[in-house]
């Protein structure tokens, strides 16, 4: 029983790490720029496809994952400057519509180029084998996800909490006008943060392809999950989205083990109830005045 519990926990955490990795960029963009970005999943999808394309042609997996992050980041930088920038001043409706339009374009393009079928990322053989972790065999891939997710979360936490960049970012999230007034270049901060967020999403799309499988519907199918992480965690809250991603991963995994047939709608019902209970998320933004 104990070993079973641990397995469920590991499954949940590895799933949660992927959700966190992809969503962390979204939480910052939604908290900082106040843009409802439904296209975030598209960046993860594009990253995944880049990694899939490269690894299927024999490229090293880690290089491919870096290339995926770079491609998603580059696309993020370009789109932030061109199509996101005019959105900051517009209402939520315009943001929803434009970003959905972007999802459609990405989906159409991916289908044209890579076909409508699931598109695998080729993982190195030692990741696809099970690994002995003392009390049982466990997929090395999921352990790898947990390790890399934890490493990136730690890195992000160090940067956000201890660097000047992090201080500026937190200041701008809390009060963009005041941040501008004290001389922070918020516009540049927007672009760089958006770029990094998209890069992380691309990386997450590549690394997590073994769990969230790549297909053209990816961007639309999973964006709800990513948004749930952000909203439940509280917009702009880094810790919140980490907690929310872990909770979501574990709840979903538990559901799949114990009430397999009801799991999908139980998850959304839980989210529904949670949002009614706490409309501003588990860790509400500190200041919105």
């Amino acid at each position: 029983m104990g070993s079973f519990g641990l397995t469920v926990l590991l499954d949940g955490i590895s799933y949660g790490m992927i959700l966190f990795l992809i969503s962390v960029g979204l939480t910052v963009t939604m908290g900082l720029m106040r843009v409802v970005n439904l296209a975030h999943g598209a960046f993860a999808m594009i990253g995944g496809y880049v990694a899939g394309y490269l690894t299927q042609r024999g490229c090293n997996f880690y290089l491919a994952a870096l290339a995926a992050a770079a491609a998603a980041a580059a696309l993020g930088a370009v789109t932030e400057r061109t199509i996101y920038r005019p959105l900051y001043r517009k209402g939520e409706l315009a943001q929803v519509l434009l970003t959905i339009g972007f999802v459609f374009v990405a989906t159409g393009a991916v289908t044209e180029i890579f076909g409508a079928f699931p598109y695998p990322v080729v993982f190195p053989p030692y990741l696809t084998r099970p690994l002995d972790i003392g009390f049982r065999q466990y997929p090395a891939y999921r352990l790898f996800l947990i390790a890399s997710g934890a490493a990136i979360a730690l890195l992000l936490w160090l940067v956000l909490d201890n660097s000047l960049y992090g201080a500026r970012l937190r200041a701008a999230v809390d009060n963009p006008r005041m941040a501008r007034a004290v001389g922070i270049n918020v516009s540049l901060l927007f672009t760089s943060t958006f770029t990094v967020g998209c890069g992380l999403a691309g990386l997450g799309g590549a690394l997590g392809a073994g769990i969230l499988s790549l297909e053209p519907a990816y961007a639309l199918k999973y964006v709800v999950l990513f948004l749930v992480v952000v909203i439940v965690g509280g917009e702009g809250s880094f810790e919140g989205s980490f907690v929310a991603a872990m909770a979501l991963g574990i709840i979903d995994t538990l559901g799949k083990y114990f009430v397999a047939e009801a799991a999908p709608y139980l998850l959304y019902t839980a989210v529904f109830a949670l949002l009614l209970w706490r409309p501003k998320g588990l860790v509400p933004p500190r200041s919105l005045a």
Binding site: A94, I100, F104, V105, G108
Partner: peptide
């Protein structure tokens, strides 16, 4: 023309509508 081309077209139309034709 192609079974998925329409998504591309509709997405493009949507982006153009929001940016240019409120």
């Amino acid at each position: 023309i192609s079974p998925f081309f329409w998504e591309f077209v509709v997405g493009g139309l949507l982006i153009a509508t929001v940016l240019l034709l409120e």
